[in-house]
Write a protein that binds this DNA or RNA. Structure first.
Lengths: 355, 355
DNA sequence: CCCCGCTGTGGTATCGCTACCATCCTCCGG
DNA sequence: CCGGAGGATGGTAGCGATACCACAGCGGGG
């Protein structure tokens, strides 16, 4: 035992270990571990003592050791395609946070939507040792990618698919209900001549939003038929759609675009034509992506808690991988989170409103 | 030794360990470790054998174990304030990638720019066990945060500070040169009546860009004095600046905004006033953030390789933490990366150009 | 010719934590 | 009063990898 130098190193890199805490609290390392991990078999008194020691010493568990010992530390893939960058940013924040909480490593992989590219991406993920994958939109809609991943025996969780297959793990908002709420909001403001810009046809969320919108319009009954244009979630496609919507008399008094980028395009086109938003035209979007609050006037839109959704997706994935090793957990695989209508400056009563 | 069930588990989670490879290759685990880590003391023949075994078995090292054994697996903080989300997104991708490469964990922490908030954020980082921190803009400019972090004995690396203190680890582009290049580009197109929108005064990059611009203007000599407005890097501030720039006759033929959000605002305001971009007005930005390619016409701007810069920042941080434990590495702490002028549709020759 | 120093390789002891098992104790019904 | 159930705790053995040391060969200078 003539290696005191080695032993002394325990404190050298400044890290407090579970043993230090145990010694300080006068209990065994096991008990500390139990407290830290929320095991129930610890008396309240002991727990307090340990927690105090933890705080006092500034102990924070060594993740590597924890993972190693508990055979955890799996790697989870995050396949990102081409969502708006602001979406990705929030998404990453949420996902990374959850990953840190669970002690899993997040491996990012960019992936185009072609079959070849997805195959390659999935292969990289597999060889990178990932055991599961999170699929933000629009990748979550790709049957190819899902098939590839499942072939590699990976658990997957889709985020924000509008209408996911029932067996797929999925975190989403109720696009249908959200679109309904927004449409009702427009009606409540007094708008009657509505315009709508659909989202990309290969994403089920687009259809849900469209269904939500038109269901309310039909419900209302008395309205003139809304003018509808096809968009593709891009600013450019929104511009094209806006041109058409704003070319034909009588002009709509409100335009509901299926996402914020397109709504921003509508605003740009309106301004170009000398229409003031919201005085001459109300514009609303969907997603509450960064552009919604960047531009002026701020865009009234549907807020999705993207970071939270990403976090829950990782949660779901982790428990799927750890818990139901073969078959899924007993609970429903779909998790619905709350959206919120954010009213900013881009929506107001129509010009000639009298009621 | 009557616990064969336990032993058998080694293969249960499907993971190939270094021992499996060693057995397969007929060498000791140590040798495999050496090969995997590129240690020089392995004969070429052995190396080949081992590499083949690795490939054949699909071995990939267990990061947790590696980190534990090598006392690595440090946590690195990434303090993000309020950069544009598109910036953050790319930044995260790059940083996360590098972190994965180095086997360090990235801990995100949001941080407002007030002293109290930064103190709290730093404390959370410290208690989270981070040993270093990456500071993207605009946090990299905050002396308060830097002081807090240094007080906590953390290594820090700033990203994209315009003119960082010489002793600070920093990854950046040459804002001055980039702004010069953009200005020369405008002059080359034939513009003479220029407008400039400065960036936020508390970021040194703003000043560098401004210096770059005005140095070229002075150099050229014969130009009318450019009109200059103060902006704050936000869309809104760009709008205000644009209003002023576009209110006074004679109108500038080109406006150089210190970032893309403000440039987008200039475009919006120009359109509102019936000016076509680039026909009636050339608008250029800086950063090549997402909005630059989202809007139409696309914005001519300076591209910063954000992901790469974030990656290099993490590299730098890791080597600082691992290498020079006390004092910095011998090499210069500043790393300059290449920017690129991206010409899109928002810049063209001025209307009446004849030469 | 011997010893030194270097290259290549294997053994052993951890790294910090948790799984699993063995205890010890308390409290209860019979 | 005893046996058993189950709460609360400690001991031990790894998880998979690397650090460090030991040692076997081999060539060159004194």
């Amino acid at each position: 035992m003539n290696k005191p130098a080695r032993k002394a190193r325990s404190g050298a890199r400044g890290s407090i270990t579970i043993k230090d805490v145990a010694r300080y609290a006068g209990v065994s390392p096991m008990t500390v571990s139990r407290v830290v991990n929320g095991n129930q078999y610890v008396s309240a008194a002991t727990r307090q003592t340990v927690l105090q020691a933890v705080r006092r010493l500034g102990y924070s568990p060594n993740i590597a050791a924890r993972n190693l010992a508990s055979a955890r530390g799996e790697r989870m893939g995050l396949l990102y395609g081409n969502p708006s960058a602001s979406y990705l940013s929030e998404f990453l924040v949420g996902a990374l946070d959850a990953a840190t909480r669970h002690g899993v490593q997040l491996v990012l992989e960019k992936c185009e939507l072609t079959p070849a590219a997805s195959r390659r991406a999935v292969r990289r993920l597999v060889s990178g040792g990932a055991v599961g994958a999170v699929l933000p939109p629009p990748l979550c809609e790709s049957a190819v990618i899902r098939a590839e991943l499942q072939a590699a025996r990976m658990r997957i969780v889709a985020v924000a698919a509008g209408r996911p297959p029932p067996e797929l793990l999925c975190v989403r908002i109720d696009d249908f209900a959200a679109a309904q709420e927004m449409t009702r909001y427009l009606l409540a403001l007094g708008h009657e001549r509505l315009g709508f810009i659909k989202g990309h046809p290969n994403q089920t969320a687009s259809e849900e939003r469209w269904r939500g919108f038109s269901s309310v319009v039909q419900e209302a009954g008395h309205l003139p038929a809304p003018r509808v244009e096809q968009g593709f979630f891009t600013f450019r496609s929104g511009l094209d759609a806006a041109r058409k919507l704003l070319a034909a008399e009588p002009l709509p008094t409100a335009i509901f675009a299926s996402n914020d980028d397109m709504a921003a395009a509508v605003m740009a086109e309106a301004h170009r034509r000398g229409l003031e938003v919201p005085h001459d035209l109300t514009v609303v979007g969907f997603d509450d992506s960064l552009i919604a609050s960047t531009i002026w006037p701020g865009l009234t839109t549907i807020h999705q808690p993207i970071a939270q959704m990403a976090g829950e997706a990782v949660d779901l994935l982790v428990s799927a991988v750890r818990g139901g090793n073969g078959h899924g957990a007993a609970e429903s695989p779909h998790r619905l989170v709350a959206y919120e209508l954010v009213a900013r400056e881009s929506a107001a009563r129509p010009k000639g409103a009298v009621d």
